[in-house]
Amino acid sequence: MLTWTTLLATAVACGQERPVAQDGIAPSAQEHASTPSPAPEEGSKAPADTAEHSDEPRESDIGPDHSLFEGKVTLADGRRVAMHYRRGEGLFEQHQIPNAGGWTKPRLIYRTRTPACQGIELQASDGTVTAIADFGLYCADGEPPTESIAAVGMGDLRRWDHHLTKDFDGWERVTVTDHGRKATFVNRSLKGHTTLVWTLTGGFSDPVDKHAD
């Protein structure tokens, strides 16, 4: 029998934070969140990682060449991070700590049923890992993405922040500064450029457009 306490706890657990509008960016085109495993519930805490004790991370289920839908990077301290797409599910992350017994279980960073684009760009700098990933119908065949993800992991890599921009050409590169406490994602075009900033204390801000003179 449901009690008022149970109903209240359920309502709080299901709450989600609405994206904030930015001049020049449509409100529906933005989402930024911290995404713990196993599901990307806004505001929830990440559980402890559980190693799978496998020698290699899980492969993407998109083929025939699944390596086109995966990415790996090694940090300066020897830790490794891997990401892969799952068909109809989204973007997943795993990481490995040297001498710790294998890779962590796949963690869902961003959930979507939209087909994935080829390539996941992973970069590590000063203990902070950044990722660029895109989704879109026929995107793997060269069509532009409709869902562009910027993601940042830090510390023990149990916490990942991600930002979604819709109907966007995707982020081209990212620069990590301030000893790993700041990451700036950039997209440049003939019309100008768009930047997206993440900081350790504030998370993701809203994208900022600057038009060419």
Rank of each mutant, 00 (worst) to 15 (best):
D167R: 10
R113L: 11
I62D: 08
L164T: 12
D61H: 02
L122A: 05
L108S: 09
A39P: 03
G119L: 12
R159V: 15
I97P: 04
P144R: 06
L75C: 08
Q96E: 14
E42N: 11
S148V: 05
G155H: 08
W160C: 01
D61N: 15
T165F: 00
Y138P: 00
H53G: 11
V73N: 00
G136Q: 06
I132Y: 00
P98K: 06
R79Y: 02
G101T: 11
R159P: 01
P106G: 09
A76H: 10
A133I: 09
I132R: 11
A150L: 04
E41K: 08
A140K: 11
P115A: 14
D77K: 02
Y85M: 06
A46Y: 00
L137N: 08
F168A: 05
R87W: 12
C117S: 13
A151R: 04
S125I: 03
A46N: 07
I132G: 02
R159H: 13
S60L: 02
T50L: 13
A51F: 01
T128P: 07
H163F: 13
G101A: 11
G136W: 01
T50A: 12
Y85V: 05
G43I: 08
D134M: 05
P144C: 11
V73W: 00
P57T: 12
G90M: 09
W160A: 05
D126T: 03
A51G: 03
G101C: 12
L75V: 01
G78D: 01
K72T: 15
A131C: 13
